[in-house]
Design a protein around this nucleic acid. Sequence first.
DNA 1: TCCGTCGGTGAACATGCGTACACTGAAAAG
DNA 2: CTTTTCAGTGTACGCATGTTCACCGACGGA
Lengths: 219, 219
Amino acid sequence: MHTRTLNGVAVEPVGSRQERKQRTRQALLDAALRAEESLASLSLREVTREVGIVPTAFYRHFASMDELGVVLVEESMRTLRAMLREARRSPGGDAIRGSVAILVNQVDAYAPHFRFLLRERHGGVEPVRRAIHGEMRLLGSELATDLGRYPGMTRWSADDLRMAADLMVGGMLSIVTALLDVGDHPDDRAEVVSVAERQLRLIVLGMSRWTSPRNGVST
Amino acid sequence: MHTRTLNGVAVEPVGSRQERKQRTRQALLDAALRAEESLASLSLREVTREVGIVPTAFYRHFASMDELGVVLVEESMRTLRAMLREARRSPGGDAIRGSVAILVNQVDAYAPHFRFLLRERHGGVEPVRRAIHGEMRLLGSELATDLGRYPGMTRWSADDLRMAADLMVGGMLSIVTALLDVGDHPDDRAEVVSVAERQLRLIVLGMSRWTSPRNGVST
DNA sequence: TCCGTCGGTGAACATGCGTACACTGAAAAG
DNA sequence: CTTTTCAGTGTACGCATGTTCACCGACGGA
């Protein structure tokens, strides 16, 4: 086999054949994820160059960049879902502070995934956008049924639960945006965290006082 | 002068020289705005082709696509600002319902502008992203000082005002997102409007009960 | 041991790109 | 009426791209 190089460093060919295939496939995904530009302006050749394979070898793993993008959406969504799952079974103490802390840690650990999702959510290529849109709706649904099990919200209508869930997802996304945009300076980060906690607190406060003004959709 | 064509239709050369220059400049901006792809993957040649001029003529108006992008940010932000200004001096009736109605109308009228802002906010080219980021911060500041003049919020700290303003801007953006993503079916649109109104109502409810848990930033 | 599978190679192609350059001809300035 | 300005033209260039195709040779099952 031709010994491959990645950034000039030799990559020794160890493992079974499908293990190695899996590894280059993952390397392609990682390279595309790491890129600053959107998928639409990221060339197949750039990605393969980064990984250290010849352009045509790309097709051994994906039929197109769009297909790679959709896989990347699934991968990124998995970390988002993991984050919510972790937040769900949070300690009994300050739930808000805990949730924000989890969010900060997760964004630190998986910044490229979050950046990718925000980047491709609008304006990327169509199949990727569709995939993100669908996953986001699913996420909202899950959170809604989960909220319905909370002690104080058992009497909420399904519609209101969905409304509140979407509000929380939206708030979460704007917090992620703030975290990604802010620099590394600790004071700035602390400020973002403080704002996020108070915003969540305000929303929860509103939820605690909520009575549905009218049932159903105004037609 | 060489008679130009746009989509095969002749464009008669009327007006003074600078009037005509201004018109093609605007045509370039419009063409870039109308494009589905992000600016990063939109080629100079595509834009000029759309407008009906030769590629090199682009440089008579902008030094680069990035420069055009920044101008487009200013143009789009002007409509966003106009929307908020209109919402500010809303009728005394149902402020929330009125604000959402204004938002819906504005998004209908200027969908490309909003789409552009959401698209380029993340993942576009760097100068454009910076421009949007800066304008968004400014918008938050304006809304914060404006909120401070509201009867019930005169005692809020500057920090809390900013927090609430950012929450509202974020909520507004997610409503715009929902409006742009939803199809033309009236029922779907009505559902989005209903959700938006209830979300804003929930936030306002939270604000009405708000007492700052602690003054200043937790360091 | 033999042989099929298959991840990766390398040359070749048509196409689209950004930009340099010299140009034209109508509008504006004198 | 002459001169200057300047938005738009047309050619030409080097370069990067996606995709095709035939090829290679190590791995893995028989």
